[in-house]
Design a protein around this nucleic acid. Structure first.
Length: 455
RNA sequence: GUGGAUGUAGCUCAGUAGGUUAGAGCAUCAGAUUGUGGUUCUGAGGGUCGCCGGUUCGAGCCCGGUCUUCCACCCCA
């Protein structure tokens, strides 16, 4: 018997009924939008083979993978000489053949390759499940959190990118979260690196300029220099990093700068096409802006890159994604391009809570509670409750014949809209006293008219 | 992984130079009110002061370690 207080692991959380109703509101909203665009759900296991996960998220990502210790003799195959801290990676692979998934995209790629003959392409799927990262927790960062992924795989068309923008717009519109979609293209970034003669440092360059909003231009230049980017190249990068104007103005300027790069020009064309298509779509509440400083660390992106930030609260990105031309290639299926985004439900929750964006109605459970006066009255009420329920009115009977004060208190705390009182007198007369818990008014209703009255 | 803060009742926090039985508000429960909540009044319960160790006659307070949460970096949803 442990005397210690029960706890849960660092960075994980329990969710109360109130929190769950809010979380479900987010999940249900997102799901309804995904369905409206014809996406179908899948699920994959919490654990994947470690070989599926390793090497997909960069060096940093590998470190953040939770590994699952083998069952039984996990030291089998481990040479005592191998046990030292310089050898942690190969050691952990010997003792752990499974790991918790780090995101939903890589398991999805695995899924697509594994079931390629049963899938109809283009395959539009959504997936809402938790993922785990051994990160150090802080604001908006958890070790267990939910991602809500939508992806189309098996189609090169830019219509998919456009559709994703519309989905993002719909989701945040329905949730009432003002946000901005930042969009960039990996090909433009490649073109930049190519034009300044630093192609092999693409990742370093993108990671550095990704920070411009946070640390400023000077610090970005310093970081570039520290990463070994030549002074000349940094100089050439300046007009690109600090590019301003409308989306099309930016693209125009870029055409001049990147004229020498075939890849870069292709990226510009792609972006132009996306913006042109979005132009005539009215009612797009969410701003879409070309942001060249948007890089995103995941190195499997090859085309468009998306990131969504909440306008009214400081929070990391609440949604992100992009196009990956060859993610399935590493699992043996070549030439299949996909594009998708992932909504961070937990961050969206934090933003909505901060903004007070959750509907009040989420707090109530039943619409109606019947007061309990004893077994005879309760028995009389049960059929009435069933009638209400079958009419779509959620109703409950207080389980004990407790004091009225206690029963009303309960209804009050649970935000129940009406309390129905059927005691001896009401039973005799075939009526019910119905109290509106918001206004405090109470009226007498015939039992037969209850359903109609409470709708 | 690096650096910094934090931890006292269910919650939000007091706690004076280390000195008897550690306090408040809110919440909970009971009563005032035997068929009426959200207002009021009265009373009650609830804490090994995150955990482990050290210094001291004596530690909530000082020291070391550890864990949690939070913040910055790294990276990211």
């Amino acid at each position: 018997m442990s005397q210690n207080k029960p706890t849960i692991p660092k960075g994980t959380r329990d969710f109360s009924p109130v929190e769950m109703s809010r979380r479900n509101f987010i999940f249900d909203t997102i799901k309804s939008v995904f369905k409206a665009y014809g996406y179908q759900p899948i699920e994959t296991p919490a654990m994947e083979n470690l070989t599926t996960l390793l090497g997909k998220y960069g060096e940093e990502g590998d470190k953040l993978l939770f590994k699952v210790l083998n069952s039984g003799d996990f030291l089998k195959g481990v040479n005592p000489n191998d046990v030292n801290s310089e050898n942690l990676n190969s050691l952990s692979v010997k003792m752990c053949e499974k790991g918790l998934r780090y995101d939903l995209t890589v398991p999805f790629a695995r899924f697509v390759v594994q079931y390629q003959n049963e899938i109809t392409f283009p395959f539009k799927r959504y997936q809402i499940q938790p993922v785990w990262r051994a990160d150090r927790p802080q604001k908006g960062r958890y070790r267990e959190f939910y991602q809500c992924d939508v992806d189309v795989i098996g189609s090169d068309s830019l219509l998919n990118e456009i559709e994703l923008v519309l989905i993002i717009n719909d989701v945040f519109g329905k949730l009432g979260v003002n946000s901005t979609i930042k969009i960039n293209n990996r090909k433009i970034l490649s073109g930049m690196a190519e034009v300044v003669g630093e192609s092999e440092r693409l990742i370093d360059i993108t990671v550095a300029i990704d920070k411009i909003d946070k640390i400023g231009l000077d610090a970005v230049n310093k970081e570039l220099s520290e990463k070994g980017v030549s002074a000349k190249a940094i100089d050439m990068l300046q007009p690109i990093i600090t590019l301003s104007g409308s989306n099309t103005e930016k693209l125009q300027k870029l055409r001049n700068v990147l004229a020498a790069s075939v890849t870069g020009m292709k990226g510009i064309d792609e972006m132009q096409q996306i913006f042109d298509s979005l132009q005539p779509l009215q009612g797009l509440k969410t701003k879409v802006e070309l942001d060249l400083s948007l890089a995103r660390g995941l190195n499997y992106y090859t085309g468009a890159i998306f990131e969504v930030k909440a306008n009214d609260m400081e929070m990391g990105s609440i949604c992100g994604g992009g196009r990956y031309d060859d993610l399935t290639g590493i699992f043996g299926l070549k030439n299949v391009s996909g594009v998708g985004v992932s909504f961070g439900a937990d961050r969206i929750y934090d933003v909505m809570l901060h903004l007070g964006a959750f509907p009040e109605s989420l707090l109530s459970s039943s619409r109606v509670m019947f007061a309990n006066f004893g077994s005879r009255e309760a028995a009389f009420c049960l059929p009435i409750l069933q009638q209400l329920r079958s009419s779509g009115i959620s109703a409950e009977l207080y389980p004990d014949a407790a004091k009225m004060k206690k029963q009303f208190d309960y209804a009050n705390k649970k935000n129940i809209a009406f309390v129905v009182i059927v005691g001896e007198a009401e039973m005799q007369a075939g009526i019910a006293s119905v109290k509106d818990m918001v206004s405090g008014n109470q009226e007498t209703i015939k039992i037969e008219e209850l359903v109609e009255h409470l709708k």
